[in-house]
Simulated scan of single mutants.
Amino acid sequence: MRLLYLDAFSGISGDMFLGAMLDLGLDFEALKQELAKLPVSGYQLTHERLAKSSIYGTSFDVQVAGGKDHGFVEHHHHDHSEATPHQQVAEHAHHHDHEARHLNDILALINGSDLSATVKQRAIAIFTEIAKAEATVHQMPLAEVHFHEVGALDSIVDIVGCCVALELMKIDDVQASPLTDGSGFINVAHGQMPVPVPAVMQMRVGTDIPIHQRLDVKTELITPTGMGIVKTLVTAFGPLPTSTPTKVGYGFGQRETGSLNGLRAVLFEKKN
C-alpha cells in the first residue's frame, strides 16, 4: 500500500501538488500524455528543479496562451442542454481555452475524454465541490455558476493532472497535516477577498479539516483548487505517520510569502 502524506506547512495549490509529485518521481512525459487525452489546447506544461531556502524541489506551471484569469465571473452562457456529450466536447475543443466555463461544460469535457474512470471520478468530484462553494458564496444556483479560477484552462489541467499523478504513482491513500493559510486580503477582478478566500472557507463548512492561519503572511496560501483537492482526496489529518518514509519531495508555489512557499510530500510504503 502506498500512502502519500501532504505536509501543508505553507498551504496547497494545484501547481504545488504537481510540483511535489514530480519531485517524488512522477514521469513528466507520462503526465503530458495523459493530459493530452483532454480535448483542449492552448497550454504548455513546464517544470524546473531549483533551490529555495537552500532546499531543492520542483516548480510546476501551466502556461496558457493569452495569460491566466483568476476569480469568479458571472455571465450568460450558451445552453448546451440539448446537445449530446460528444457535441458538447467537440464544441469545447473550439472554445477559447482560457475563457470562463460553466461547471457542466467542464464535466462534459472530462467525461468525453479517454482518461481512466478513476481520474474522471476524482476530477469531477473536485470541480463539483469547488462549484458548490462558489454557488453558496455568490448566492447563485449551481447551474449558473461561471468562474475563471476553476474554469480557466490552467486550473482544469491542474486538477485533472493531480488526479492523473495519483494514478500514475499508484497512490492508495492520501493523508495530510493540518493546513496553513495566510491572512489579510487579495485583490481579484471584482474587488478584494479576505484570506482564507470565501470558497476555501465555504468548503471547510461541515468538515473537520484543520486550518492554522499565519497572521504574518498577508496573502492566500490555500487556493480553491488546493482546498478542493484536500477535501475530496485526503482521508485523515494529523502528524507524520510513524512508519518509515521511502521518499520526500517538495513542490514550490509561485507566491512570495517571506518564508518557504512549498508543499512537502512524503511517500510511505505500508505492508498490507
Rank of each mutant, 00 (worst) to 15 (best):
L179Q: 07
G182M: 01
P198D: 05
A236N: 13
V174G: 01
K132R: 14
L233W: 06
D173S: 13
D208L: 11
V234Y: 15
L166T: 08
D216P: 08
V230T: 12
G249I: 08
V234S: 07
E129D: 12
C162Y: 00
G191R: 09
I222A: 10
G182L: 01
E129L: 12
G191Q: 06
K247Q: 14
A131P: 04
V200P: 01
N187M: 02
H212T: 12
G184D: 11
N261S: 07
P178S: 14
C163T: 12
T242H: 12
F252Y: 14
V248H: 05
G262K: 00
I211M: 11
T244M: 09
L168G: 05
T128R: 12
M169H: 04
I156G: 03
A199G: 05
D208A: 14
G228A: 05
E129I: 06
D181H: 07
M203P: 03
I159C: 02
I209M: 01
T235M: 06
Q192I: 04
N187V: 10
D158L: 07
T223H: 01
A143H: 12
K170M: 09
I211N: 00
M140N: 02
T128G: 03
D158K: 03
T235H: 13
N261R: 09
Q202I: 06
N261H: 10
N187A: 13
F147W: 02
D154M: 04
I186N: 05
I186T: 03
G161W: 02
Y250T: 00
Q139F: 08
E134S: 13
P194F: 05
T219H: 07
T225M: 02
G184V: 03
P245I: 05
Q213I: 15
I130E: 02
I159A: 07
V164W: 06
T246G: 05
P245Y: 04
V248G: 01
I186R: 06
T232K: 03
I209H: 05
L179N: 04
I211Y: 04
K247C: 09
H212R: 14
D181L: 09
I171L: 13
E220M: 10
G182N: 01
D172E: 13
T180L: 08
P239E: 13
I159V: 15
D181M: 09
M169G: 01
T207Q: 02
A143K: 13
A199M: 03
I159S: 02
A165T: 08
M193G: 00
G258S: 06
I229F: 15
I130P: 05
P178N: 14
F252D: 07
L153H: 09
L233P: 02
H190R: 07
E256T: 06
D158W: 00
D158T: 04
L233V: 11
A143V: 08
T235G: 13
H146M: 12
V150M: 15
I229D: 04
G249A: 08
T244Y: 10
L221E: 11
Y250A: 00
P194Y: 01
V150F: 02
P239F: 05
A131H: 14
T207Y: 06
E167P: 07
Q213C: 10
A133Y: 12
G258K: 02
E134T: 00
I229W: 08
E220A: 08
V160R: 03
G191S: 00
P224F: 12
